[in-house]
Design a protein around this nucleic acid. Structure first.
Lengths: 225, 225, 225, 225
DNA sequence: TATGAATGAGTGTTCATTCAT
DNA sequence: CATGAATGAACACTCATTCAT
């Protein structure tokens, strides 16, 4: 369904229309499978105009990534207001995250799915955003856990692994919530809060699962691919 | 480095060579960016032979997904031998998972990255495998938690969300472990075990974080994209 | 280096700016490779203005050819003042020619290189100018030779071939002088004067090289391309 | 008139057909104006095959230049057999040159007209051939003149300028002979032989035209374009 | 006098796919 | 069992040109 052909818009407006169309197309088809023709038609403009304003397919994709990454990080930061106690901040940040990804599924697909599969440049742009969110969310989680368990002993060595796990969990939950009818952002956030809150708390309280030392090589596959 | 040109191989062998080349190419370039030319050259055969044996690019990609999915699920199942106690089974399954993904990065990229970005057919094939692993791992986690905490009360409503979170965490950890030098499969497994074991345990013991009831809509963004 | 953007110029001035930019661009890039965008930017005006004043790319190129052709023929004619003796006229005309081409390399490139490679129309416009110069220079050469050798017997049949040879020699010398540092217009003119003066003189004195009559076909190539 | 569509030719043959079509098209339209579509159709093949065999428009043009340059230089060298006296060698070389350019007008256009207007790479390839011909022809001319006039005093300082003039004259004569009905290669060669033979001879005999020393600046134009 | 906004038509190039042998 | 020869259809990108103001 191509947008209604509106003529003679100022450049800034047209650019946003193009980015809208591009995010939708890239999100649904992927970078390679999306054609500039399709994006232009969806934006209701001719292809040359897209090139005039956005320069190239690469640049267009980059612009999409940057716009969506900015929108997502700002949504999360805006949700978690710093005057709240840490666990409420975390709760609000997660809720904002799930709400935003639910409202902008194509943007989320661009960031989470498509940008990671093409070239180190694009992946790098997303990785930067991800790192920012990781830092933000993890800090809140740690503060939350610290408050709840009064234990300043951080098992620092594992923190980055845990952060990865947490972010991966959140990303997966976002996909799951978006594709499962009836699951709200609040429910997804609650699930993750419970999970993270208890797990981190126990870890910091020193209650941990210990791997068996006597393992033989647990996987006997041959040489790597 | 194209495979040595060996002539007159039996069909089964040739097919495996082609699949090897295809998995490598698809994993590194993505479905759309991989060209049949490149795959054929890497496999050391002519293009028509690839078509003769594998029919089309779609079918070739499907075959890759199926082969790699089978290999992964079998590796996980083989690791977790049913005579062990549940937590040891879980540990062994996770270790096998991280080991396998580390040993077959291209196959893992095909399953985790590339197949999800193109068409419902491919995504469906991966989703089936994922569902199987989810079921398997979750059952183990639940058994583990039950053993440890002796609490048969399962908050069943949340289980599928938790499962998604867990699998997402595992997937993210796999990527992180593969791209972070010095992180072994055991360490990744340990991190996830700790996380999951404590979190699930607390949940089942009824210790949970309660979201505030009085929330206003925490995110006021406009209409979806 | 785009021209300074000066607003509201009278039409004649703007047109010259555009022609300057066009000659430079056409001379350096060639007709096809030169873009109206580049010319407009170099002229410091917007593209529609170029079309308003010069109508089309073809017309713009034609205008360049005509302007540069006029400038060149006028420079040559102005150099060779008719009150001088014929050989001095010839000398002055050649010097003016080499001086002008050295001072306007882009204009010379347009006339000598670019206009001849595109369409009979442009080539025709240049051919007209060339014919005029040929006529002028040849007449001077002939007069010179007549004065020097007092021989009114003109081998008329060969004159046009000689004229072509002379003009071609002059054109090549112009390119050579422009691209060889340290070669002045005077030197180029002197070289050609010597060459032409002696050659023509001998010819008219009846001293000529006679081709062998008994030749077989000296080149046995196959059919034309 | 597209070539008859002959199917399944061996690669070498097809490549020559493509080069034939390319030389014709480039020679008539110029590098930029020639389209790969047109070349492919004229060669009686599809565009992808042209790219498969010749790689790119640039490479195709280069291949044309090299093929035509080789053909031309070989034709000239084959004409001038070294056992002949120098003036007969020169005569034969010139005749071969004019014959070849007359028989391959498109190839000559590629070399003389089109290749010089696009990029230093192409111009360089032609310049190399030109230098070779210049060296060859000039050496013959000098030998001829030496034989005829028994004067070993070479005004060496002017030789390169004279060589340029001679080659330019030959090039111009080739164009003129090709475009003037009824002018044969022999006539063109005779014209140039006479011209060069006498001119060079006089120069070497010390009979030269002397430029006036008292000249004021003979051309008062303004700044260069 | 001057321009920001816009496009139809074309370019070089690539790719999945198929014949004929 | 295996391939050299070949293409239809598409894609990213560019350009001369016009309209509305």
């Amino acid at each position: 369904m191509p947008a209604v052909k509106t003529k003679r818009m100022p450049r800034a407006v047209r650019e946003q229309q193009m980015l809208d169309a591009a995010v939708q197309t890239f999100g649904q088809r992927g970078y390679m499978a999306a054609s500039m023709d399709e994006i232009a038609e969806l934006a209701g403009v001719s292809k040359p105009l897209v090139y005039l304003y956005l320069n190239s397919k690469d640049d267009l994709f980059s612009a999409c990534i940057r716009r969506e990454a900015k929108a997502l990080t700002e949504a999360v930061r805006a949700g978690a207001r710093p005057e709240l106690p840490a666990d409420r901040q975390l709760w609000a940040g997660l809720t904002a995250f799930f709400t935003h990804t639910a409202r902008h599924p194509d943007g989320w697909a661009v960031l989470h799915l498509q940008a990671r599969t093409h070239g180190e440049v694009f992946a790098g742009e997303v990785a930067a955003m991800r790192a920012e969110i990781v830092a933000f969310v993890t800090q809140l989680i740690l503060a939350t856990a610290r408050d709840a368990h009064r234990d300043p002993d951080l098992p620092a060595a594992e923190v980055s692994g845990l952060a990865e796990a947490l972010v991966g969990a959140a990303e997966s939950l976002a996909d799951w919530a978006n594709s499962t009818p009836g699951v709200t952002a609040r429910q997804a956030a609650a699930t993750l809060m419970n999970f993270a809150w208890a797990g981190l708390g126990d870890l910091m309280a020193g209650r941990r699962w210990t791997p068996p030392e006597d393992d033989e090589d647990p996987a006997g596959q041959g040489a790597p691919t």
